[in-house]
Each structure stands twice: as structure tokens, then as C-alpha cells.
Design a binder for these strands. Sequence first.
DNA 1: GCTTCCCGCCAAGAA
DNA 2: TTCTTGGCGGGAAGC
Length: 983
Amino acid sequence: MNVSCPRLDLSATGGEKQQINCEEKCPLERSICGQKMMLTPYFSVPHLPGGDGPCLVHSAVLSSGCEQRSSQLLHSGAVGKIAWKMSSMALESQSLTQKAHSKDEGFVAPKVTINTPNKSFGQCAVSVDNQLTMGPLTTPKKGMEVRSVDPWTPTSNLKMLISAASPEIRNREKELCVDNDGREGLDPSQESENGDWKMISRKEKSLGLLCHKFLARYPDHPNPALNNDICLDDVATELSVERRRIYDIMNVLESLHMVSRSAKNRYTWHGRTKLAQTLAVLKQVGEEQRYGQQMLHIRQRLRDKEFDFDGEEKENEEVVELESGEQGQKELFFVELPGVEFKAASVNSRKDKSLRVMSQKFVMLFLVSNPRVVSLDVAAKILIGEDQCVDQDKNKFKTKVRRLYDIANVLRSLKLIEKVHVTEERGGSPPLNGSAPKNSHKLKSSTSECATKKKSVLEPRALENCAKNLFSSPGAKRGFTRHPSLIKLAKSIQDDRRKINSAPNSPFKGAFSDSSNTELPNKMAQLAAICQIELNQESSTGADDPKPFAAEADPAAVRLDPSSVSMEPPQAPFQTPTQETTVNTTVHLTPHTPLTALPTGSLAYIQAQCSPLIPVLLPQQRGGMPYAVYLHSSSPRPNPLVRPQPTSLAVRSMTFEDKTGQSPTGQGTAKSLPAFRASDVSPLVLKRLRSDSASDGSPSKAKRTDPNFKARLKARRGTQPLNRPSSRALHLDPEFVNTPGGAVANQTLEQSLETFLDKEDRTAYSDSEAGLTPVRVVPLTPGQLHTETLIPAGYLIPISQQSLISYREAQDAGRESNKALTPAYLPNTHCRQALAQETTPTSLRLHKPTAASPLTTQQAHRLHSPSPAILNFTLQNLGLISDPEGVSSMASPLALQQRGMVFIKPVSPVPVQQSLSGQPMTLFSLQQPLMTTPKGTALPQHSFFHTPVHLSPLAAMVTPGGQLAPNTVYIPQRKLDVATEES
DNA sequence: GCTTCCCGCCAAGAA
DNA sequence: TTCTTGGCGGGAAGC
């Protein structure tokens, strides 16, 4: 059967945006809709709420079909400062062959076509046939829906993709196939009668999966010249769902301007062509709405609750939250894009509660939050506040959360956000008094989450990681971490580790076995040393260290996937403008940072960036997309910038990464902060904010062991925010805005950002001098992951090669920009040159440019060398990186030992330099001591394996005074925890 | 027990 | 009046 639907082949329109009469062009369409469709002309001018006028700032390049070219220009560095690269998920690029192929061509027709020569004529594959024979489609009635299981339909293709990606679903699909053998054509209602439909797992009927199916039908970048019309009836029929569900999807997609309502029951598919533009606009609007501010308030309240053991406080806080939420907040309606006419049916009647509006607001929260982790709870509160609902009750909150789940699921399908495990970083207040955390259920939830979800990725280590989380959680009561049963568990885990380490492929087997016996005591002794070191360091550098703003994670976070917008495989070594803008920022490594060589590996010790995660790069896996596996480190990490130690609570969360590659801090926060300090903000609020940030600089757990430090901490207690991610957190992917248009669109934002950054840094300094921790000092680098709050436990985070490369570029640019910076700004820059190429530990084989290669050697390194960002990220997480001015004591080999993290080559010892010549290097995650409470000062190093390497960034990093030592240094190593993707 | 979110009722509004 | 749209919350699956 070959159904030729003009909807899929309207190239005859010549690319003109014109009114298309279905009756003329599409017999099928005629029979289906018989109505005119208007391809959206891009003329109208949006009026952004709170804005002074039309928001055309971000619309310059994007719109209609110029994106592709713009993208190329941006990637080549010819245009703009921000290159929103379209990276792709390996899955997408590999599986969606048709889609990817289409993308390569720039524009493609909607994949609605069902051209299935081999299609079987089973009863189950009848959607199109039925359309042809049934005449005009009407609203599907219950029982009329047909399950489209034809293997050659787009939906089936999607199923294949999903099946390939998920063994669980694959198995389920197999079962379904078996079931359908005898009952093909059964519609959901019929199956329901038979019980089959209801037997289908709830997950398989999820809105996210449905959205996946829906998205698989259409290209990311449709040719505007073609008819990209969407008939809801068709979709509902072919996806075998009720239209109600389709509305949910469409509303969210509409909020992102991926679709636009063209007529009743009809939408026009825009794909991701406008996504970047939309996100840029939303970001701007979000900043205007001061969502970041509101989130801070709410988070602060939540943190206050944590410290307040009086449950009655809750009600009062609710009121305050509402007030704060209403503060300075303007009523926000649907944000339109230039040229996008909004035709929602009930836009005027329900817009305030519309799912699309909620979706936009939700996305805004990600865009303006730093880190881009948004708690559903917080989001719900904000949304409720906007609704001016004073008498909010739990029901309303629950309803809001339900809707947010719906939205989040769709956004996840779009790969704009993703759920992540977030370690509960209870920054604030280490229970010095030994009191138990108020939120014990969260602890349970976290651990449960860890035990279950991490299992899928790191199953062998699931329990271990959970235990590590427990021990690494500063927020958790220490007494708990010392509980004998946990210690016993830790030992058990260590035994397991020994077994793993004793594996034949472990190059350090002997060393580890030797040290295993004394490992625990030694580590504890080391921890004590760390306490002292960090305390000293804090004294010397103290508040000068850049601190992430609003680092606390909320209970449920979503994260934007770097590949969400892009379908292109990461490849280009071009520097993104966005990253260039971050040159002045402190080097903040994230899993999304480039795996480039370390030509100038600027390494900085960012105390606040310490996280319990040990990122392990898994380069070039899955279609060339490197992944980072985050393993929780159990070691006590000095984390002055972040709110104290994360509790070991790894709660399920979602991250929404900023795909703009822009630092949330740098933009959302930076831009919002000035307003914060404006006169319209009460001193109390400002103080709270500062105190909030102060928590970012909260001492590590190790520090807390110091009596003096405890006293200091105690004095500050109550003002320190909890860096505790909520159980419902979403994280926006840094790259989600990484689209060409977005780059241009955000250019303006970026330009204005630097001014704020400088301001903020200065302020931070003054705050530090005043005894307050700077609100925000760490401008995040593109694609960076806010480690202190965003701690995906056990997730494989795809790393865009592009972003990685971009990071390198950003660093380079950053160094140059730093030269021009005022001295006041420099201290917070934390960028330092290093003998990158010679010393960079790498997990990637260096690319040797050929004569024909247009790439320079440096570029080649950028492409294939390990990213300093990764290194920084890791080291920062481990607290091993020191800033140029910082005390170098932390960066001693001992510190490395204590952190238990090291970059090593499979064949060790070998100078890193050699590895750079083409030999692959592997990044290993070394296990951390489970015991987090340092009790001794003895620092036995003999138990550690040392890998002599030539001076590396690592070595340079650990060199006191920031001086590069031209000597080979020994990198202490501990147990090997070979983190592979399979692990 | 809590989180997550599917499901479908039913109301508002458009046709 | 019919149909579209989608707000809303019960309640169950899943953890």
C-alpha cells in the first residue's frame, strides 16, 4: 500500500508560505478535513508580558527556513557569539534514519507519510487505510481508536527506537506482538474489555511515550514550504489515544512554538525551528518576571523549614511564599513569538491556567534558575502564586504538580529536560547538634531512588552508591553516617570493591589490595587533614571563591538535555559564541564540557563546586557521543561554595540544562541579581539572598568536624540554605538552547551578561569582606552542570562533543578576556593557563591532523582530547582544584589521595604526554572512603598507588602558588573503580 | 506510604 | 446544539 498524501509532498508549493487548500492538493486531506490550512506567516509581533514592547531581540536570525544556514554560520564563528549547536542523541541520530536524513537535507516533509510497500494488511495497521475508506474523519469515539502497530509506520518506527533503547519496552513489545497475533485490530476499548489494554503497563501509556510517538512522526526541522499540518484526529487515531491526551501534548508543544494552532482540530508543525528562539524569549520573559528571584525566595523558605523544627511554621511560610511569589510578579500570559500567531481556542478564557502557559512558565523557571534544576514543588508554588491564589490548599498544589508532571513528561520527550538523580545537598546546615534531619522521608526516598533507578545504569554499584550517598551527605545527621550498621555496609561494599579491583583488568590491583586493610582508617585520617586544609584555605580564600548562586537543588529537578534541540551528531570543533562569552567565568567543569585537550587547561579550585559525584567519561560511545557517568563519591569533599555537603540522599530529580550554553548564573542570575539589589528589594530579602549564597560557601563536612569550624558554622546556621534537591527536580540542559537561532537570540543577553557578572563579582567580594558569602560568583561555563545541586546519580549523561569543544574555546577566549578585565574581576575568574596539551589526562585519543585536515593541531586536540572542563569538573567535585590565588594545600597529592580521584592511563605509569600522542587514556573513578568523618590526622600515603606523570594540569593544579612544576608528579591513586558505560 | 501521572468527567467556549 | 478544548482531580500504578 502506498498512500500518497500531499501533506507529505507539498514541495510543489515552491516553499512559499501560502494558503493551501487541502481540497486542491490533498485528496486525502480533503477527505479528512476539507478545510483550508494556513501556513503560518511570520509577521505578527509578540508583546511580551512585562516588556516594553515587541520582543524582537531574539528573532533576528531564526524564523522559517534560515535556521539551517544560520546554524552553519554560527558554527563557523561567522555570526554571533552564541552557537546553539544542534547536537543529537546517538539514539536519535542513529535510529531515526529517516529523520536524520531529512535533517541533513535541511528541511523535510512531515513524516506522516505512510509509505509501506511491505506493509502487512493486518487489521492492526489500518489507520491510513481507514482514513481512505472511511471518508471524513470525525472525532474519534471511544472504541474507534485503532492500535497502529504496523512496523513500517512512523509510530512503529518509534516503537522500534524505543524498543532498541529499552530492553524492558522491547520485551513488552514482543509480548504485544504475540498478543496481537490473534487480536489485531483491537482498539483500546476493546482491549479494555478483554483486559489487555488495561494490562498494558502504565508506563507504556505515559504521556511521555505518547509524545515520543508523536514527535517521531514529524521532523525536527520541517520544511516550511511543505504542508506541516497536523490533524488531531489523525494523530489520535494513529497513536491510538484519546484526543484529550493529544491536547496535552499539543499544549506543551504549542508553548514552545513547536506547533501552532491553525484551525479547529488542526495544528501546524514547526518542529524545533523556533525552539531556540522561543527559549530565548522565554528566558528573557522569565527574567523579567523575576522567576529566579521567586525561586530563591521559595527555596529559602523551604530551607528555613528544614531548620525549623516547629512544624507550625509551615503555614506562615506558605503565606510568605505567596507574598514573595507575588512580589514583583506580573501576570503572565502566553508568550508569543514574532510572527507566530496564537490561535488557541480558549486562549482568552483559560490562559491563566492553560497548560501551555504553565509550560512556558515552567520552562522559564529552568532558564532563569541556577543551577537549572527546578523543583516541581517550587515550580508549583510559583505557578500557584501567579494565579493569585491566596487560599491555596494542598489540593491546588497537588493539581499543579500533576500538571507539571504532564508538562515535564512532554518536555522530557522533547529531550529538553530530563530527570536526574540529585544528591541532596543540604547545604545549610549540617546538623551540628546531631539532630536528625527533619525530612527523613526524603532520605528514604532518596535512598530508595538510588537503589532503584541507579540500578539501571550502575546496577553493580547501586547499593554502593547509595551507601556512598549516605555517607557523603552532609545534611544527614552525622550520627547516622556513623551508625555501625552503615559502617558494616561500607565495609561490605569495600569488599565488593576489592573484588572488583582484583579483576584482571585492574592495573592497580596489587596496590589496592595492599591498602585495603588500612584504607578506612587512613581515609579517615586524611579527612581530618582535609578538614584542616580546607579550613585554612577558607580562611585565606574564603569568600573570595566564586560561589554558585542559588545552588540548592530542590526536591525534584529536571534537566535539559544537551541533545534535545539538535539532531546532529556532535562533531564540529567550532567554538560557540556562547562559550566565548563565558571566558571570564571561573572554570567550571561540567559533564557537558568539551573533551578537548588541555592546551591551556585552566584549572581552578572551586570549592563550592564540590559534589559527591565522580564523573567518569565514557568517550565516543553510542554513536560517538561521549557519556559521563556520575558516581557518587562518598568522600567528604570540601565544598565551601556549595551549601554544605550533599546529604546522601540521591533523590530523583530532573534537570533542565541550559542549552544556550550560557551560564545560568551568568545570565538568569546575573541579570536578576541587579534587580535583587535594587532598592525595590528589601534589605531583609537581600540579606537572605546573601545568606543563601553564603550557604553555597558552606564548609564541607570535613570542616564541620573541626570544633572551631563547627562553631563558625553554627553561627552561620540558619542562614545557610539547604542544597537539598527536592524529590521532584528538573534540570534544564545547558545546550537546549544551543541552536543557531538561539545563539543569535541570546547574544544580546550574553552581551549584557558580562556587565552583570562583573558587578556580581564585585558584590561578591564586598560581601565576602563583610563576612557574607557572595551571592553568586561562579559564572557557569557553557554546558556546565551545576554540580552542587545537580547530581544525576548513575545516569548516563550524553556529552555533546560540540559543547565540549566549545568549552575549550570558551576557555581560550576567557583567558584573553581576562587580560582585559579589571583586577576586581580577575580574582573570581579562576582561569589559569596550564600546560594543557602536555599534561592533560585524557580519555580520548588525540586526533592527529593530517595534511588534508583543515583543522589545526589545536583544533584536533579540541576534538579528541579530554576536556579540561571534564577534568575541572571532576577535580572540582573532588575539591582538588585550586584557584590561582587559592591556597594550594588542597591541591597536594595528598589531597588527591584523599579525594580518591585520579586520572590514570590504563597502562600506568606513563607520562601523560605520551598518552597524548595517540594513546588512549582512561579516566577512572576512584572509590572514596565511606567514612566521612575524619578522626585522625595521620595521612598514610603508602597505601596509595602512585602514577608518575609528567607535569599535567593536575600537577600544575596541585602546585602551590599556582606555579607549574616541570617535574613529574605522582598522582596518588586508590582503588580503581572502572566506570564504563556498562557499569 | 509516597510519588507519579493516567484517566476521563465535565465545563467553557467555539462552530 | 454539537463539538472542541482542556481544567481538574480521583485514584491507581509504580517505587
